[in-house]
C-alpha cells in the first residue's frame, strides 16, 4: 500500500456525519448501545470489530434501513435519524451494502444505472459512468454481462461503482474485502483510497482490521454495541489490545 494516512495528513475538516449516543434494536435485541462517532470531510474512517459487534447495524442506522430508537444522526448538519432510506440516498449518502447485493439479473450497466436512481442531473450520467469505468476497467469489459455471473471481486467492484454513480457526499462501505482473494483485496483498497483522494469521505466497515487501519485516517473499535476504542488509525495500529484482538499479533 503506497498511500497511508500519514502521507495524506489528518487535518480535521468539517464534520460530515455525526452519530450521537445512537441506540438501535432488532426487535427486543439491543444491538447498538450508545454509539458516538463522526466522519469529517476528506477522511477515511474505519469501523472495526468482531462479528456481531454492531458494525453493519451502525451502517443500517445511518442509511435508514434500521432506524435508531434513541440518539441522533446528523449529516451535513441535518438530522437524518428517522429519515426514509430513499431520502437519505437523495441527501448524498451512498453505500455498497454488506454481501454486495447486486441486482443479479440486471447487467452491470443496469446496476450502475440503478446507482444513479435518485439523481436528478441525468446530464452528468455519462461522465460518472466514465469515471467508474476508469476506476474499474473490468466493469467496462463486462458492462453487458449479468451481474449475477460476475466473480466475487468483480461483483464488489460493481457494488462500489454502483454506489459512486449516486455521486455521494459520503460513501459507506460494508465489508468490501469479504470473500475476496488477497490480490483483489489489495486492489479494492487501492481504489478506496483513490476514491477518497478524489474528494469523497468514506466510512469503511471491515473485519480485515489490518488493511482497514492501513488506509484509514481514524478508526473506531466496536465491541458488543459500544465504542471500545477510538483514535488515529496509526495509533490504533500500535495499540496493544487492537494488535492482540484484531490483528492477530502477539
Amino acid at each position: 500500500m503506497s498511500t497511508t494516512a500519514t502521507d495524506r495528513g489528518t487535518d480535521s475538516g468539517t464534520v460530515v456525519l455525526e452519530l450521537n449516543d445512537v441506540h438501535t434494536y432488532y426487535g427486543a435485541i439491543h444491538a447498538l448501545k450508545g454509539v458516538t462517532l463522526d466522519v469529517r470531510a476528506g477522511e477515511i474512517v474505519t469501523l472495526i470489530g468482531a462479528n456481531g459487534a454492531g458494525k453493519s447495524t451502525t451502517l443500517r442506522s445511518i442509511n435508514g434501513l434500521n432506524h435508531a430508537r434513541k440518539g441522533a444522526i446528523r449529516f451535513s448538519g441535518r438530522d437524518i435519524t428517522g429519515a426514509a432510506p430513499h431520502s437519505i440516498v437523495k441527501m448524498g449518502i451512498a453505500q455498497s451494502p454488506e454481501g454486495r447485493r447486486l441486482f443479479p439479473r440486471m447487467s452491470v450497466y443496469e446496476n450502475l444505472e440503478m446507482g444513479a436512481f435518485q439523481r436528478k442531473d441525468r446530464s452528468n450520467f455519462k461522465g460518472d459512468l466514465d469515471r467508474v469505468f476508469q476506476l474499474f476497467p473490468r466493469l467496462a469489459e463486462r458492462r453487458q454481462q449479468k451481474a449475477g455471473t460476475l466473480s466475487g471481486g468483480e461483483q464488489q467492484m460493481c457494488a462500489i461503482g454502483r454506489a459512486l454513480m449516486a455521486r455521494p457526499k459520503l460513501l459507506l462501505l460494508d465489508e468490501p474485502s469479504m470473500g475476496l482473494a488477497p490480490i483483489f483485496v489489495e486492489k479494492i483498497f487501492e481504489i478506496i483510497v483513490e476514491i477518497n483522494q478524489q474528494g469523497t469521505p468514506v466510512l469503511l466497515v471491515e473485519q480485515n482490521a489490518l488493511m482497514a487501519l492501513d488506509v484509514a485516517n481514524r478508526g473506531y473499535v466496536l465491541e458488543t454495541g459500544r465504542i471500545a476504542l477510538q483514535g488515529e488509525a496509526k495509533d490504533l495500529r500500535q495499540n496493544e489490545r487492537v494488535r492482540q484482538t484484531y490483528l492477530g499479533e502477539t
Partner: peptide, 13 residues
C-alpha cells in the same frame, strides 16, 4: 430482484 438493495439505491419502496 432485491428489495433491500433497491432501498439502498434510493428507490422509495
Amino acid at each position: 430482484e432485491d428489495e433491500t438493495a433497491a432501498a439502498a439505491m434510493g428507490v422509495p419502496l
